[in-house]
């Protein structure tokens, strides 16, 4: 069961571009997350990236940091994130779910235990922000033997030599962090992205998805011209923060924003 690879290849074969949406599990309320995941799919999202709340999210800009803090006010744990994926799977077997987070909660659960439980819950991949392939040996073996794919990051500072190694280690897709900075820092520069993605293609057989500066339909469309898909995080999380206390408004606004993105791809 490699649902992530399969799904992304289907999209690519049809000449389409993948739309990936990031939300933090438990933000703003634990009970919001599963219905919101369904809403995202209904609005046109192909892959859901579910953030695991962490006390020290060092790669995140202010918008996503606050989402982690909101989720942690409800003490949302990795274990609960997995339960949310299980609950989502009761009604959706098709949409890949990728967990994105930091290593310590996974270390705390134990690699083997995490990999087994993630697979059982219906998680298809992981992106561990502070785990480069060099340090990932123990976890990647466990994930692979449980059929969960490991996605690694490429950055503007990544050398050709590292890019080749990272693409070799990745499965499902590789995630190009389009700017030097934290999530949501600023808008990406389309010509920079074009150049770097073009360069990485030489090493990379996998789909390359671009994130960290995709803010709106315009940037999503610019990304789609050069890459296989776009990841949108801070822009969605920002809307969620604005209607924290009103789920109906939150669903409506996130849904309509995602539809705009979908139309642009």
């Amino acid at each position: 069961m490699a649902r992530l690879s399969t799904r992304l290849n289907e999209i690519g074969d049809d000449g389409g571009k993948a739309l990936v949406a990031y939300i933090v599990a438990g933000d703003p309320q634990p009970q919001t997350t599963v219905p919101l995941m369904h809403e995202l799919v209904a609005a046109g999202v192909d892959v859901i990236e579910l953030g695991i709340p962490f006390s020290d999210p060092e790669a995140e800009g202010p918008v996503i940091q606050l989402a982690h803090e909101r989720a942690l006010r409800h003490k949302v744990s990795l274990s609960q994130c997995l339960d949310m994926v299980s609950a989502f799977r009761e009604q959706n077997e098709r949409t890949p779910v990728v967990l994105m987070g930091y290593l310590n909660p996974i270390e705390s659960m134990g690699y083997e235990n995490f990999a087994k439980r993630a697979a059982e819950a219906g998680v298809n991949g992981t992106i561990i922000v502070n785990l480069p392939p060099e340090e990932a040996g123990g976890l990647s073996v466990q994930l692979k033997s449980n059929g969960v794919e490991s996605v690694y990051l490429l950055a503007p500072t990544t050398t050709d030599q590292r890019a080749a190694m990272i693409c070799e280690a990745s499965s499902g897709f590789v995630y190009y962090v389009s700017l030097k900075g934290t999530t949501g820092a600023s808008s990406l520069d389309a010509s920079d992205v074009r150049e770097k993605v073009g360069q990485f293609r030489k090493f990379c057989k996998l789909p390359i998805l671009v994130g960290f500066g995709v803010k709106d339909a315009e940037t999503a469309s610019a990304v789609a011209e050069v890459a296989d898909g776009a990841v949108v995080g801070s822009a969605i999380v920002k809307i969620m923060a604005e209607c924290e206390s009103d789920d109906a408004e939150l669903f409506a606004r996130v849904g309509s924003f995602v539809r705009e993105l979908r139309a642009a791809l």
């Binding site: 340090e135 990051l153 950055a155 500072t157 990544t158 050398t159 990272i166």
Partner: peptide, 11 residues
């Protein structure tokens, strides 16, 4: 070890 995001690896 080096447990950082990819952007910092080159630095």
């Amino acid at each position: 070890g080096k447990f950082v995001s990819e952007t910092l690896m080159a630095a």
